[in-house]
Design a protein around this nucleic acid. Structure first.
Lengths: 193, 193, 193, 193
DNA sequence: AATGAATGAGCATTCATTCAT
DNA sequence: CATGAATGAATGCTCATTCAT
C-alpha cells in the first residue's frame, strides 16, 4: 500500500481547478452547461477534463461529493459544540437551516445529481456526517427535546425536500412547518409568509 | 351558431392521445424526452404533435395544466365532504397524502415545467383548487384541529417539496414528519423507514 | 372539343383569389412562403389550393405566367402607339424602363421562378409579347434609331438582368449604361448615382 | 511570440476542404443545400463544419469572401498591366468578361449571400478591388477611351446584373450590349446569339 | 500528460404534400 | 368539391465523447 505513484503536482492542481470551475458553472447555469464551458472556465482543454473525469456524470458526482463533505464538516462541528454543552435541539435546528441555505447556492448541483443519476463516489464523507448527526439526535432525545422516533434518515429526507428554489421567506416558513415534526418544543408561530 | 364548428372527432382523439403519451413519457424518461419519442408513443407523427402544440414548452404546459385540474377536482371534492360533515383536518391530511402519491407519477412533469419555464395557460383551475383548500383550512381551524396560522400557501409549499422520487415508505414518513406543523392533533408515531 | 365542363363559377373565383394571394405573398415575403400561408391569404384551405395547383412549382409558374401576360399587354400597346406614329426607339426605351420598374415589385416572383425551375405553362403570352417587341424593333431600325443587329432576345436578356433589387437611382443609371448598346442616339449623361 | 501558435496543420487542411466543398455544393445545388451535404462533400462530419463556421451564414460569407478576394487579385493584376503600358479600356473589357465567366461558377454563391444576408467579414479585399478598378478607369478616361462619367459603381452594377445563368453565347452578347455604355470605341457587332 | 480538432447521434422545428371527413 | 388534420423527410444546430498530435 504505497501511495498511488505520486508526483503529478500539476495534475492535482488541475483537478482542483476543474472541480471548482464545475461547481461554479453548474451552480450558475444549471447542470446543462457544456463540458467545453466547464473546461474553459477551469482554464484547461476538454481532453484534460476527460482525463480526470471520464464522464460528465462522474464530474457531477465529484462536485456533489464535495457538497457532502462540506455538510459532513458542519455536522461534526455541531457535534463538537453539543459535546461542549450546547443544546442539541437548537444546534440541530440551526444546522438544518444552514444546510438549506447552502443548498440554495447548490440547487443546480442537486438537480444535476438527480438528472444524471450521479452516485456519490465514496461514502466516507456521507458516513462522517451521518454519524455526527446521529449523535446529535441522541443527545437531543436524552434532553427530551427531540421526538424519540426521529432518525438520521428523517434529517436526510427533509434535506432532500427543502424548497431550495423558493424565496427566503418561503424557506423560513418551511422550516417552521417542519420543525414540530422533529422537536417537542412549542410550535413557533408563522415565520412570515 | 354556438359550437366552435368542430367535426374533427379524430383530432380531439389525437389531442388526448398526445397528452396522455406526453405525460407518460415525461414521467418515465424525464423532460428531455424527444418530441419524436412522445409522438411515437402517442401513435402519431411529429407533425401532428406540432399541430396541436406548437412548441415543446406548450406541450409541457398542457400536461402540467392537466395535473393542476386533477388536483383542483380533488380539492373541491374534499370541500364537499367537509361541508357534508367530514372532519376537515382528516380530509386535509388524506388530501395531502393523495396529492403526494399523484405527484409521484407527475414528478418529472413538475421538473419539466420548471425546466422549460412553462406557464400554466389559464389560472382557472389553480384558483378552483386554492379556494377549496382555503375553505377546508378555515373549517379545520374552526374545529381547532388546524393551527390558526396555516394558509393555503403552506399547503402549496409542502406539495412542492414532497419527496416524490422517494420510495413509498419515505413518502409516508415525510407526511408524518410534516403533519405536526399543520395540525394540533397528537403526533403520529414513526411510520416505518 | 366542347368546353371543359363549365359551371364551376366558384372554382374560377377561387383560382383567382389564389393567384392574387400567391402573387402578393411571394412578392412580399419571397418564394419561401409556405403553402399554408398562401392558402390563408387566399381565404381557402390548403387542400383547395392543391386542387388548383398540384405543386408549389405549378403555382409559382402560374404567377409568373401572369407577369408575362402583363408584359405582353404592355408590348402590344407599345406596338399600337408605334403604328400610330410614335417614335419606336423612344417607346422601346420607355417600355424597358417600365418593365424594370414592374419587376421591382415582382422581384421575388422572378426569384421564385428561378429557384423552382418553373416553366411558363403555355407560351401564348410570351409569343404575343415577342411578336410585338420584334415589330417595334424593326420600326426603330427603319428609322435608323436602333442598331441593326438588335433582336428580341437582346431585350429579353436585358430584362432578365435588370437590377431589380437595387435602389431607384441604380436602376436609372443601369438603364443609361445599357441604352447605348441598343440605340444609335447620343449617349445620355450619368443619370445620378 | 509572433505566430498564432498553430500546429493544427490538418485543421487548416479541413478548413480548405470545407470552403472548397461549400463553394461547389452551393454552386451546383443552390444555397439551400443542407449543411450535412456540404459536410459530406468535404469529407468531414457536420460538427467539424460547425467548428470552423459557427453558422451557415458564416460559411456562405466565407465562400463569398473568397470570391471577392479572387476578383480583387484580378483587378490588381489588371492595374499592374495598365501601369506597364497596356491599354486601359481593353484591359477593363477583358476584366469584365473574366469576372462574368467566373461568376458563372459562383452565381449560386451570390444568391446565397443575398438570401442569407451574409455580410463580407472585412472589406479589405473589396477595397483592394475598388481601388484598382478606379485607377484603371481613370487611366482609360485619360486615354479618351472610357466615358468620363463612368465610375467604379457602374462596374459593380454591371457585375451584379451579369447574366451568369445564361449560356456562354448570351453572356458574350450581353457584354457586347453593355460595352458601348462604358467605352467610346466603335460598337462591336452582334456577337452571335 | 495536455491539447483541441473531429465525430456523429440527437434535438426541436418546418413544410410540401396526402387523404379521411 | 372544400376542408384541414396528418404525415414524415429534412434542416440547422448542439454537445458528450474520442483520438491524433
Amino acid at each position: 500500500m504505497t501511495q498511488a505513484r505520486a508526483p503529478r503536482a500539476d495534475a492535482v492542481r488541475n483537478r482542483r481547478k476543474i472541480l471548482t470551475a464545475a461547481g461554479e458553472q453548474i451552480t450558475q447555469h444549471g447542470p446543462e452547461v457544456g463540458m467545453d464551458e466547464i473546461a474553459a472556465a477551469a482554464g484547461v482543454a476538454v481532453g484534460t477534463l476527460y482525463r480526470h473525469f471520464p464522464t460528465k456524470t462522474d464530474l457531477v458526482a465529484a462536485v456533489v461529493a464535495e457538497c457532502v463533505a462540506r455538510v459532513a464538516d458542519d455536522a461534526e462541528a455541531v457535534l463538537a459544540r453539543v459535546a461542549d454543552g450546547a443544546r442539541a435541539a437548537d444546534e440541530l435546528t440551526a444546522f438544518l437551516g444552514r444546510v438549506i441555505e447552502q443548498s440554495v447556492t447548490d440547487r443546480a448541483v442537486k438537480a444535476a445529481a438527480q438528472t444524471l443519476g450521479a452516485e456519490p463516489g465514496d461514502h466516507v464523507d456521507e458516513d462522517r456526517g451521518s454519524n455526527a448527526v446521529a449523535a446529535v439526535i441522541r443527545a437531543g432525545q436524552s434532553d427530551g427535546d427531540i421526538h424519540p422516533d426521529v432518525t438520521v434518515s428523517d434529517i436526510y429526507l427533509l434535506f432532500s425536500t427543502a424548497p431550495t428554489d423558493q424565496p427566503p421567506a418561503a424557506r423560513g416558513r418551511w422550516l417552521a412547518l417542519v420543525l414540530p415534526g422533529l422537536t417537542t418544543g412549542a410550535r413557533p408561530v408563522g415565520n412570515r409568509c
